[in-house]
Design a protein around this nucleic acid. Structure first.
Lengths: 139, 139
DNA sequence: TATTGTTATACTCTATAACTATA
DNA sequence: TATAGTTATAGAGTATAACAATA
């Protein structure tokens, strides 16, 4: 059992490595760096947030997020405004351009994955996706 | 059919995103940057190579590879020597330390994936892995 | 001439430490 | 004081342009 499991794990490992590389290439082709896209996706998902919260979500330092937000604001991807409830805070929100960039990248990656999905028999698809979902549950 | 395929693609997309993030975190926990590990893996797979070839394999500029190799040599991960067949060339090879670093990272990631694999029913495993292999074939 | 690798320079993303303004 | 954000500074990784040595 142990000797048989090794190759199986490697196959799944290579699948993930290859497909994630393809997906990263799509982001690059749209001119979105990993740091920016990840922050934009967080804003799309979590909504308006302050610098500190974004830094925590993105697992980067606050100075790094300060700078990232500043550069993305210059690029027109996000908007900053003071937090009325806390004079120290700064609230960051997506602009239309920022939201569109996220959506475009997501759509292109989903389309890529959907194409790949066509290569496998539709009959087994549901069982397989359930199986993948289960693998990513929990810690 | 089109409306039904969207969620399926998204499930596969999220699976790949989550698992690849877990794998990246493992590399980071071993103190290996993405750039270094990727170059070390290429050397492990392709064997001794010169700077230009490595830059091509890694899809980075030659100056970037010159610097990466220089820093990895300082860290004891690779060794440089002149190419006897071309006075301009520099051949780069893994050291024992470099090879061990690659193998340790790979082993840890395979072990992680193997754990995840246990969460899903073994009965369908072979069929599903065949399916995943097929999805990553070709362009 | 063309190619290999390097140096020079600059940009992005990252971190820690020190500072400011507010709570 | 404690916290939110910034500035200062430094390091890794990336690129292009210009250069040296060799083919």
């Amino acid at each position: 059992m142990t000797t048989k499991q090794r190759p199986d794990a490697e196959r799944l490992y290579l699948f993930v490595q290859h497909l994630s590389r393809n997906l990263r290439d799509i982001d690059v082709s749209l001119g979105l760096s990993a740091a920016r896209l990840s922050a934009l996706v967080s804003l799309r998902f979590h909504g308006v947030n302050n610098i500190g919260a974004l830094a925590k979500i993105e697992r980067v330092s606050r100075p790094a997020m300060t700078r990232l937000v500043r550069d993305m604001e210059r690029a027109g991807l996000v908007r900053r405004r003071p937090d009325a409830k806390d004079g120290r805070g700064v609230l960051v929100a997506l602009t239309k351009k920022g939201a569109d960039a996220v959506d475009r990248a997501k759509a292109k990656k989903i389309a890529f994955v959907a194409e790949r999905l066509k290569r496998a028999p539709a009959k087994e698809r549901a069982a397989i996706l359930d199986w993948l979902d289960r693998m990513n549950e929990g810690p």
